[in-house]
Amino acid sequence: MSNGINFAFLDEYAKREIRRSVIKAICIPGYQVPYSSREMPMGRGFGTGGLQLTLALIGADDTLKVIDQGSDDSVNAVNLRKFIEMTCPGIDTTTRLQEATLIQSRHRIPEQPLRADQILVLQVPYPDALVIVEPSEDKRKIMHGEADYSRLLVKLYEDIVKFDEITISHRYPTRINGHYIIDPSPIPRYDVPRLNHSEALILFGAGREKKIYAVPPHCLAEPLAFDDVPFRIEDFTDSHGERRACKLCGSKTSFLDEFIDEQGARVYQCSDSDYCEQQQELAHG
């Protein structure tokens, strides 16, 4: 290979360590397995944890999709995809979810359902849901082991008392298989229910914080909530009580990005660009 770079960049010892960690992550759903996390040639915080997972998983017969904020064409997604294409000769890349075997994503789970033969890798900036109530990792590890989440629940309860609403917008704490509570990465609340009994394995990689965790397929994933204050996804209804639609494909079910157009009007568009394009193709035959 040119530049003397290994297939998938990492040396085989680094891959083996990640592989051992991935297996333990699957065996202990929601537990953050520590790993040594090598430096990648892109910034910590730009998806190096997800990238290391992808590089430990990928083989020449894989078809890869990389998305950032739902888009295959955002600069960071392009950058990661280019790097993986450069270091993994032989792989295919795609923007179509259905063609992908491996999907690396930041901040979104694709709109369309995943299949059993696909693996979703999510990039994680903050792996630990307990960090808002306990800064010491030493103590958090014990709390996780004992499934002691009382302080987190108190925090949510205080929110409700103060605002009559749970104010956590994204990174919504989610309990996996009735034990560990995870930070599901900064996916919107809209995506959280799709962690529950997913067909595909979902892996989480936090490079800077050096953690790997997993939600296996067909595994219980419950967003934290109270009986009288249910978990709620983002609300896209307008002032007339109508669900807003994507201005490009007309979808009234997808997660929408909101922005201000040239005329100063507020407009909405699918966040998942692949889904949006496929909807438009269907509409135009």
Binding site: R44, F46, N76, H170
Partner: peptide, 14 residues
């Protein structure tokens, strides 16, 4: 430095 820089990336979903 990586984490400080990453705030320059789009965060529109969150």
């Amino acid at each position: 430095m990586g984490f400080a820089s990453h705030y320059k990336m789009p965060h529109y979903v969150t």
